[in-house]
C-alpha cells in the first residue's frame, strides 16, 4: 500500500522573540505514515504535540527539519500556491474551531469547499443539505450563520464542511468531542465511509471507544519529544 501521508524526521520548536527569545522545543524526529484506507490515531498526554503535528501536516505550522509528503507533493517545502491547491483538492482538515465570515449562511459555509473546486452551485448546495440533514442540523438553522450556533452544532458544521469533498487525505482534530451519542455515531460512520473509499486519515480522538471503532492504528506522539 502506498503512503498517502508521510512524515519523516520532522522537528519543531517555537521561538518567542517577544519573551526574551525563549526557544521551546516541541517535537523532534517525528515519523509516521498513513496509507489509503488507514485511519491512524495520534495519542499521548496533553501537550505532547498531537495538535502541533496535525497543524504541520496541514501546512499551518512550518517544520524546522524533516519532510512531510502528501501524495506526491512535499508539503513542507511547497509554495503557498501549491499548498492551497493541495488543500482544495487533496487535503481536508476538520479543526475544533469554526472560522468563517460572519453572517454567511450555514449551507454556504458547508458548500464552500465544493464551490472552490468549481462544482456547480446547485450540486454543491444539495450535497451540503444532505450532510446537514445527516448530522441533524435542524432545517431552520441552515440559512443562519453558524457563528450563532452552540458548540456541538458548530462542530457538526465543521464536520460537514470537512466531509463534503472526498479528500484523499483527511486530518481530524477531535471530530467527536462535544457530540451526543446519536451524532457521534453519524460522524463515526462518515469516517468509516471515508476509509472505505480509500481515504488516508490521521486523527486525534480523546474518545477511546471511537478510536477503537474507526482506527486501524495508533501512534504515541510523546516518543517524538
Amino acid at each position: 500500500m502506498t503512503a498517502m501521508l508521510k512524515i519523516s524526521g520532522v522537528s519543531k520548536s517555537f521561538t518567542l522573540h517577544n519573551q526574551a527569545g525563549v526557544k521551546i522545543p516541541v517535537m523532534s524526529e517525528a515519523h509516521l505514515s498513513v496509507s489509503a484506507g488507514e485511519c491512524i490515531a495520534l495519542v499521548g498526554p496533553s501537550g505532547a504535540g498531537k495538535s502541533t503535528l496535525m497543524r504541520m501536516a496541514y501546512g499551518n505550522y512550518l517544520v524546522d527539519a524533516g519532510e512531510i509528503w502528501v501524495g506526491d507533493v512535499c508539503l513542507s517545502s511547497a509554495s503557498p500556491r501549491d499548498i492551497l491547491m493541495l488543500r482544495r483538492q487533496t487535503l481536508g482538515y476538520v479543526s475544533q474551531f469554526l472560522r468563517v465570515v460572519p453572517r454567511v449562511p450555514t449551507t454556504e459555509v458547508v458548500a464552500e469547499p465544493l464551490l472552490a473546486l468549481g462544482v456547480e452551485r446547485e450540486v454543491a448546495h444539495e450535497r451540503a443539505i444532505t450532510l446537514l440533514k445527516a448530522l441533524n442540523i435542524p432545517q431552520r438553522l441552515w440559512s443562519l450563520s453558524p457563528m450563532t450556533f452552540s458548540g456541538g452544532e458548530q462542530q457538526r458544521v465543521n464536520i460537514a464542511r470537512g466531509f463534503i469533498h472526498t479528500y484523499p487525505v483527511l486530518l481530524l482534530d477531535e471530530p467527536t468531542a462535544s457530540l451526543d451519542a446519536e451524532n457521534r455515531a453519524v460522524v463515526l460512520s462518515l469516517i468509516e465511509q471515508a476509509r472505505a473509499r480509500g481515504a488516508a486519515i490521521l486523527g486525534i480522538f480523546h474518545d477511546e471507544a471511537a478510536r477503537e471503532q474507526v482506527c486501524t492504528g495508533e501512534i504515541d506522539v510523546s516518543q517524538f519529544l
Binding site: 517555537f14 522573540h17 497543524r55 499551518n60 505550522y61 512550518l62 503557498p80 492551497l84
Partner: peptide
C-alpha cells in the same frame, strides 16, 4: 511571507509575533 494561516498561526519574525499577539 507565506500562507496566510501559517504566518498568522506560526509567526517566525519577532515583529509578526508582536503583531499577532
Amino acid at each position: 511571507a507565506g500562507l496566510t494561516d501559517q504566518v498568522l498561526d506560526d509567526p517566525h519574525h519577532a515583529y509578526t509575533q508582536l503583531l499577532v499577539a
